[in-house]
Computed example of a mutant assay.
Amino acid sequence: MKHISIFILTLFTAFSFAQEKEQLMALKKANNYVYEGNTLANEDDFVSAEMAYRKAISEQPTSVAGIYNLGNSYYKKGNYEEALFRHQQAAENAASKAEKHKAFHNIGNILMQNKKCKEAVEAYKSALRNNPADDETRYNLGLAKECAEQQKDQQDENKDDENKDNKDENKDEQNQDKKDNEGDNKEDNKDEGDKDKKEGDDKKDDEGKPKDEKEDKGKGDDDKKKEQQKPKPQPGQLSPQQIKSLLEAMNNQEKKVQEKMNAEKQKGIKIKTEKDW
């Protein structure tokens, strides 16, 4: 039993030693790839440098140096999105304050390039928490604060302008509604006035005067039409009225002759009056 325990312990020790040796080999390979990548980056061969850094990360996924330097490579090429991702990885995997400080400092630089000043302020603050003595980080923090303040003022100004535009737009809509309402009221008043006028005309018709005038006018038109329809006397002929007047004159003349004849018959007889003059 004692020999078995010693054998198991020996196997465990050998396995641990082999595993540790494998990790050391991976770390050595990763560091070599990082060194190669740095050399290529200094020669401005960023494509080859990126490949070397990726190999370092493949050998040791938690290699802060490989991740950090790969982020720097992306930053130099202007690929800020990928650079930010890699430096965030470096900050998460960093085992020392010095590594965290450098990662957060570079994160702040990338955010400033992307005009995210408020977020950059927080990144620089995190960097200073891990290395308060870094004057460069402190200087960048001041720039980030000033930039964030300017952005805030600009946003407030844009918000005020937007509110003003909305207020003016609402005012224009209210004025338009007011004009529309006034127009509707004028139309309503006009319709009511026309209605009252019509009712007043109907009332006058009921009272008789305007209606009678209308009827009289109509009647005069009828008489005029009838007179126009009457036969007009032709030249050399007597009109019915002239014939009637002539007959009346003849009757009056005959009556006068008859009265004269009767007077002649009674001429010899004297008539006694009641008083002598």
Rank of each mutant, 00 (worst) to 15 (best):
K232V: 07
I67Y: 02
V47Y: 15
D153A: 10
K152Q: 11
G66R: 00
S245D: 12
K225G: 05
E248S: 12
R129W: 06
P240I: 01
H87K: 01
Q89P: 03
G37N: 15
A127Y: 04
Y33W: 15
E213F: 09
E92S: 06
N109V: 01
M250F: 06
K178S: 06
Q176E: 07
Q151I: 02
G183W: 00
E119F: 05
F46I: 10
Y139C: 04
K28F: 15
D205T: 05
K217V: 01
G208M: 08
K217Y: 10
F7G: 13
N170Q: 14
Q228S: 11
F85D: 03
N140K: 07
K21W: 13
E182M: 05
K2F: 09
E43Y: 13
T137S: 14
K219L: 01
K145V: 04
K76A: 06
C147V: 01
D221N: 10
G142S: 13
N42T: 14
I271H: 00
E169P: 06
N69D: 03
Q151G: 08
A91T: 00
Q234F: 07
G78D: 06
Y74A: 00
L143I: 05
E207Y: 12
F104P: 02
Y75L: 03
Y80Q: 00
E20W: 15
S239P: 11
K167Y: 12
A133Q: 11
N114C: 03
N32W: 14
D276P: 09
K29H: 14
A65D: 09
Q88Y: 03
N93C: 04
R54P: 11
K265R: 09
A90G: 01
N185F: 10
D196N: 10
I269D: 03
E264D: 06
K179Y: 08
D276N: 04
D201Q: 12
Q88V: 02
I6A: 14
Q60T: 05
A148F: 04
